[in-house]
Design a protein around this nucleic acid. Structure first.
Length: 703
RNA sequence: GCGCCUGUAGCUCAGCUGGAUAGAGCGUUAGCCUCCGAAGCUAAAGGUCGUGAGUUCGAACCUCACCAGGCGCACCA
């Protein structure tokens, strides 16, 4: 009896975990494909442990062609190595001896030893169609697992949002939608750096360069293009500073300090600017269907002594030290993490050697508190991260944000008195996603290092830098916008936007342009629509085009933005996916008129017959894909890649279009078959709409 | 100098964490609207997966070296 020792216990424990996971998944939605895969994996693992006493991770994949089944495992190759038997023989043994798995029709051996599983197509149909009738969908506010915080957008409140900010917000918002779909409890936060250098620069631009009074700034802030005005002022201010660095340092220092301490005209103007710009940002993002639960403001981190608390913790633990010599003298710094820290054993051997020669200028150390006593962004972010995980022992006060978009409640932190109705934002999170661009990886590491130094290694691990690459411009696009490029820049595949030079595509300009382009198309195609309908339709298509465009790239791909691409509505685009839905709706409208289109109940037998064999492959592939939505969503979460859902939506739309051209649904003479085709169309519509909703994209009735 | 990322079709990108014949969109070429909407569909052409070694039953994917590009290493964020 080999099955007695410790390994076996491990195996059993693992099964229990796997089974529980499978059960949990089974309850939470329309994941037919996922469920079958889990069952198969479970059955194979059990069988192998039982028959061969081997504990193995069972990998499952999609075979290259549908004739080879719906799920396949190459596990026999691995098993063959361990048992020193031929893989094909093992595969045959397993295929013969594996107990029946619900929903799986048969298992065959293929190639050099693959195990190919064939799903019971009729049953798959019945499962998917049944869910449709019950109308059960995933609850938006799941209870599964602990609280998750997604922080995204977090734009400096000193100028209008640009295309790069939109990528951040769209990625974050999509992540939130996918997590919620999967039943996770998610809170959305938008960090407002209202006491930072960028706001200070605009304040200096207004007060010092333009000689404005606080009253005139207040008037200005009420103008509809204040965010655009600030865009220009910021560009001018940075140019001015570049010309006179000494003055810049002095002015910035003074202004920053005044803002932090909340005194004088500087603080007054900073508040006016930041509050107004945040409201502009909220409005811009609302156009794209992006909303927030909480605006976490940096001013409160200071005023409510969050930083002071964190500062004490950091000092006490020795995570930060006061530099007394070198050019960082007078600063509190976090020393660079020693690489050898993760070498667990035998470290003493290396310890004796003198580190290096140039330790006097502590290059790798990160300044947390400047010599003038002000705190850097990293310091404030450490305090903020500690609060997110409930480790600070303090909480914000909360009030409704006055500048929230219409019919929307947005909460914000405040130093004044707290609104009793405010949700419990201070409840500790178990996982935090910080959607921040890839260039800030170093700073995010320093923040994580701070958490670890305070003994919160687990939280540091669950604080995920959801990094993404920048949105740049193609040289052609930059030229179109009238930017002067150096010869070197013109040769590159893309040109980075620059707030300093005032270069960039403003979010609202882009949305306006997209809406104008879609409006023109809608007018041409649908003269019968009312103006309001046309506007609404154009808006939905424009948002679909933009969000899809930003989501189809994986996170670490640099997007070289070009109006030609973003304004394209053909091929792999949002409108393509929306068009598939519109076609389905067209069929339904027409069907109601002509056939009476009673979808009625399609028996499993009928479905099975239509889906079976080579003749049914086309229909089956569409159905299978429609049933794989949650598989795509789970993959997007585990792989931290919202693009997977975008790809899924496109592939489903594509598969539907193929089906649409092959089968004439309404003119199908066989009533049973017509009912089935209509039913299949309904399933596809539901799944496609859900997939698009995860991307924050709606589908219009007509387009 | 140190650290991170990237190199796949003419262009822009996928490639399910090591599996079966490497995919899509755009562009090009040739077709499809008396037929549920052509923002659509069909077909063709297009690849030494940066280079070289290694790991193994099996590599675009893992390891190492090199080549090319990008980003980061501020008392900015």
């Amino acid at each position: 009896m080999a099955c007695r020792g410790r390994p076996c216990c491990t195996i059993l424990r693992r099964f229990r975990a796997v089974t529980e996971m499978t059960l949990r998944r089974r309850c939470d939605g329309d994941n037919v494909y996922q469920t079958l895969k889990d069952r198969l994996r479970d059955a194979l693992a059990r069988h192998i442990a039982f028959a061969y006493h081997v504990d193995m991770d069972v990998t499952l994949e999609r075979p290259p062609r549908i004739e080879m089944g719906e799920a396949a495992s190459p596990l026999c190759f691995e098993l063959a190595k361990r048992l020193k038997k031929a893989p094909r023989i093992l595969a045959q043994e397993i295929a013969n001896a594996l107990p029946e798995v619900a929903g799986i029709e048969r298992i065959e051996v293929a190639g050099a030893g693959y195990l190919n599983a064939y799903f019971a197509r009729g049953a798959f149909w019945a499962d998917l169609a049944k869910e449709e009738k019950s109308g059960e969908s995933n609850p938006g506010s799941g209870t599964g697992g602990g609280k998750i915080i997604v922080e995204h957008t977090s734009i400096n409140p000193n100028k209008a949002a640009h295309i790069g900010h939109v990528r951040n917000a769209v990625l974050g918002d999509t992540l939130v939608r996918i997590l919620r779909h999967a039943g996770r409890r998610v809170q959305v936060q938008n960090y407002i750096d209202n006491t930072g250098v960028q706001v200070a620069d605009v304040v200096i631009g207004l007060l010092w360069m333009e000689k404005r009074t606080p009253v005139s700034v207040k008037m200005m802030a009420m103008e509809p293009h204040f965010d655009y005005d600030c865009w220009d002022i910021y560009a001018k201010a940075t140019q001015f500073f570049a010309a006179d660095q000494a003055q810049a340092t002095k002015l910035r220092g003074e202004t920053l300090r005044a803002i932090e301490e909340g005194r004088g005209e500087e603080a007054e103007v900073a508040e006016v600017v930041a509050d107004a710009i945040v409201t502009f940002h909220l409005r811009t993002m609302a156009r794209l269907g992006i909303h927030y639960d909480l605006l976490a403001r940096e001013s409160e981190i200071l005023h409510l002594k969050f930083w002071d608390a964190a500062f004490e913790m950091l000092k006490k633990s020795g995570a930060i030290v006061l530099a007394t010599t070198g050019k960082m003298a007078g600063c509190w710094i976090m020393p660079a993490e020693k690489e050898s820290a993760d070498v667990k054993c035998g470290e003493e051997a290396t310890e004796t050697a003198a580190d290096d020669g140039d330790d006097e200028d502590n290059m790798q150390d990160k300044i947390i508190v400047r010599s003038n006593g002000t705190v850097t962004y990293v310091g404030k972010d450490i305090a903020y991260q500690l609060w997110k995980f409930g480790l600070l022992g303090k909480d914000f006060k909360y009030a409704k944000w006055k500048g929230a978009p219409p019919e929307e409640t947005v909460w914000a932190t405040t130093s004044l008195k707290s609104d009793q109705q405010a949700p419990n934002f201070g409840a500790p999170a178990t996982t935090v996603y910080n959607v921040i661009d890839a260039r800030q990886a170093y700073l995010q590491n320093v923040v994580a290092q701070g958490l670890r130094a305070l003994g919160h290694a687990k939280e540091a691990e669950h604080s995920i830098h959801f990094a993404y690459e920048i949105v740049a411009l193609t040289p052609r696009c930059a030229a179109e916008l009238g930017y002067e490029l150096t010869e070197e820049e013109a040769k590159k595949p893309y040109v980075e936007v620059s707030g300093r030079r005032g270069h960039g595509v403003k979010a609202d300009d882009l949305i306006d342009k997209l809406e104008a382009a879609t409006m023109q198309e809608v007018r041409e195609r649908h003269a019968e629509m009312s103006e309001a309908e046309q506007v609404q339709t154009a808006h939905i298509i424009a948002v679909g085009a933009l969000r899809y465009f930003l989501l189809k790239f994986t996170r670490n791909s640099i997007i070289a933005f070009d109006f030609a691409d973003a304004l394209s509505f053909e091929g792999e685009t949002g409108p393509y996916c929306q068009y598939a839905v519109v076609r389905i709706r067209g069929i339904r409208r027409k069907g109601l008129e002509t056939v009476g289109a009673a979808i009625g109940a399609v028996s499993t037998e009928t479905a099975s017959a239509l889906l079976g064999g080579t003749a049914g492959n086309d229909l089956w592939e569409l159905l299978l894909l429609a049933g794989s939505l949650d598989q795509a969503a789970e993959l997007a979460i585990s792989g931290q890649e919202p693009a997977f859902v975008a790809t899924y939506a496109f592939r489903l739309a594509q598969a539907f279009n193929l089906f649409y051209h092959k089968f004439h649904i309404l003119s199908e003479p066989d009533e049973q078959k017509r009912g089935f085709l209509l039913g299949l169309t309904e399933v596809v519509e539901r799944q496609l709409l859900t997939a698009l909703s995860l991307l924050g994209i709606e589908a219009p009735e007509k387009m």
